[in-house]
Amino acid sequence: MKRAVLLLALLVSSTASAADLVVDVTNVRSSRGHVRLSVCDEAHFGGEGCAYDGVADAREGVTRVIVHGVPAGRWAVQAFHDENDNEAFDQNFLGLPQEGFGFSNNPPLRGKPHYADSAIDVREPTTEISLRLRNSIFD
């Protein structure tokens, strides 16, 4: 019996800690499509290949997206409003966004955002943040 209790204690203590990251995305301009977001480490922030993703039906105003199982630590969030549901962040021929976009901590934009300006600390069991979508680069 003692051996089983010890084994169970070892298994529980060796599991990786993880949190639910709750993101309230504000300034969503319509209820069309979905709000998609990625939780990224520094190497992937501002691009593709982020470790964790979340999606929710868009709701005009505020859309809540929950990402389960994010390990505690330092992460940055990037989000966009996929109004046409093509699962891609649409840009025009000049590379300007055609859909709402945003980043954790709502950093000022002078080109691509910096990880240091958007990084947040995710802690167990739940971390809640808010980020504001920009519906143009001038927003």
Rank of each mutant, 00 (worst) to 15 (best):
53 D>T: 14
29 R>T: 05
7 L>T: 13
122 V>D: 02
64 R>P: 02
56 A>Q: 12
92 N>H: 06
75 W>M: 07
102 G>E: 08
105 N>F: 07
5 V>R: 12
18 A>T: 11
65 V>E: 04
125 P>D: 07
102 G>Q: 09
113 P>C: 02
120 I>Y: 03
22 V>Y: 04
68 H>T: 14
44 H>P: 00
137 I>N: 00
43 A>W: 02
108 P>I: 10
50 C>S: 13
105 N>M: 13
31 S>K: 02
82 D>M: 07
78 Q>P: 00
28 V>H: 01
61 G>L: 11
98 Q>I: 04
119 A>C: 00
67 V>H: 09
22 V>I: 15
73 G>V: 08
124 E>R: 13
9 A>C: 11
136 S>R: 07
119 A>H: 01
71 P>Y: 05
130 S>N: 10
120 I>V: 14
45 F>S: 01
115 Y>N: 06
5 V>H: 07
85 D>L: 05
81 H>D: 08
49 G>S: 04
46 G>H: 08
101 F>A: 09
102 G>D: 05
90 D>C: 12
86 N>R: 01
38 S>W: 01
117 D>R: 11
127 T>N: 04
13 S>R: 09
92 N>L: 06
39 V>W: 01
54 G>M: 06
51 A>K: 14
85 D>P: 00
105 N>R: 15
67 V>C: 10
100 G>L: 11
20 D>Q: 14
9 A>F: 11
125 P>I: 05
122 V>L: 08
105 N>W: 07
52 Y>K: 12
119 A>R: 14
110 R>K: 13
35 V>S: 03
63 T>W: 10
83 E>M: 09
43 A>P: 03
133 L>D: 04
39 V>Y: 07
27 N>P: 00
131 L>M: 12
16 A>P: 02
58 A>Y: 05
108 P>M: 11
136 S>A: 09
2 K>Q: 13
139 D>P: 01
62 V>H: 07
13 S>Q: 06
23 V>I: 15
50 C>Y: 02
64 R>T: 15
127 T>I: 07
13 S>V: 12
56 A>D: 03
128 E>P: 00
21 L>A: 09
76 A>R: 06
2 K>E: 13
3 R>W: 05
61 G>V: 10
